[in-house]
Design a binder for these strands. Structure first.
Lengths: 222, 222
DNA sequence: ATAAAAATTTAGACAAATCTAAAAAATTAT
DNA sequence: ATAATTTTTTAGATTTGTCTAAATTTTTAT
């Protein structure tokens, strides 16, 4: 029920999963770039993954994960994110120093271990970076979509839609570095005028009005 | 400061360390047997360990760990035992199901991780099997030696000496399966006559008198 | 539509860790 | 002390994952 694939294979599956998310189509070069390896090595591995039915692949024709491959990738991602949560919440690591360690921990095979860890942590829905944690069946709790006024304080939300798409609105948003996919948190809500103070990682805080907030929609994990 | 040796090398170092403890001298066959591998593979690895100055080795002449090798082995053992402690105390695993998982976890390289884990666990001195946990410098807290009357309840002690060595005493001890090296715990202390109820792993409980208890010495970790 | 560029794959090699079979050294038993 | 046995080592393969260099296919640009 456990230990099945080498760390290397698991890393390929995970990388392909992530690249599929953003691009739809994945290329040999993308993967080589993501994994800091050579395209020739990627081709070699694609053949092995295909032979194990984890990948749908015809040479020169691109590739994508099979259902089985996606399942495996999701389990790795689950492990990675649970370990990150553990490191930050229990061992007091900073969110910016846990990735590397989790890259190692995610290859520990015991399923029982990870399910017990999940329980110990209180079944968290998202990791310290705000990314959702798949449950033991590989399902995500579907993200909730709300406007910025209704995003709970200090919850990371990902911008998923803009209500008023007038050029004036878009100019304002681009000035404040807000775009589709941007990750942000509401740090403060001023009762006086319902204006909000927002924080985007690695950037100084910005303030937006209630009018703007009503027109920015975000997804977040409860 | 971290990640240095392959899991395979670490396993050899650990095995040699353990074999050195009990035998004094370690042989190629011993290691092959311990690691479920072939003698030829052991010889191959011995050469590599020697080249890295982790092992003092002349062919056909036997071998032992260098200071550096022992240091590395102790760090692996530290990691193994801390993870076992974590699994049992925090994730509610049974003491008999943690070994295999800890065999994997012990190869995670981050020293910071293991020191933080140690702190999180409250710097335990011994693992769930009663084996001492080396500190971050590789030192053991020296075991305390007491007679059985003074062994705290539910602490694992290892029989390290017998006071009265008369044939009658030895007969009694052998009948109750107590010998030098036996691991046992005091489960109950009867105030009425100071008799003790003892538990040895995988055996039914036995009772001994105060007189016997005074003559059995054990080492245990505080 | 074809030439140039880019992406991908193949061919052949290498390092790590293992194996089998055979050779060499050490130990033991008479 | 020498022959038999056991232990250890060497020689040569194998597997996994990687690489470089060259060949092939696809894409892009004119």
């Amino acid at each position: 029920m456990n230990a099945k694939f080498s760390s290397s294979k698991e890393n390929y599956l995970k990388a392909i999963f992530h690249l599929q998310k953003s691009d739809g189509v994945v290329t040999t070069n993308d993967v080589a770039n993501e994994l800091q390896t050579r395209p020739a090595s990627v081709t070699d591995m694609l053949k092995k993954l295909k032979a194990q039915k984890l990948l749908l692949y015809e040479k020169y024709k691109g590739f994508r994960l099979s259902n089985e491959g996606r399942k495996v990738a999701l389990q790795i991602i689950r492990k990675h994110r649970l370990w990150e949560y553990f490191l930050v919440e229990k061992l007091n690591f900073g969110w910016d120093e846990v990735h590397e360690i989790a890259e190692e921990l995610e290859h520990i095979s015991s399923k029982k271990l990870i399910d017990r860890l999940d329980e110990f942590l209180g079944f968290p829905k998202s990791d310290p970076h705000g990314d959702p944690i798949p449950d033991s069946q590989g399902r995500f709790t579907p993200a909730k979509q709300v406007d910025l006024l209704n995003l709970p304080l200090n919850k990371i939300g990902e911008v998923s839609g803009i209500g008023d798409q007038s050029p004036e609105m878009l100019e304002l948003l681009s000035h404040k570095n807000i775009a589709l996919g941007t990750r942000l948190e509401v740090k403060k809500k001023f009762a006086f005028d319902n204006s909000l103070e927002l924080k985007i990682r690695n950037q100084p805080s910005v303030t937006i009005s209630e009018h703007v907030a009503k027109n920015v929609f975000v997804k977040y994990d409860e």
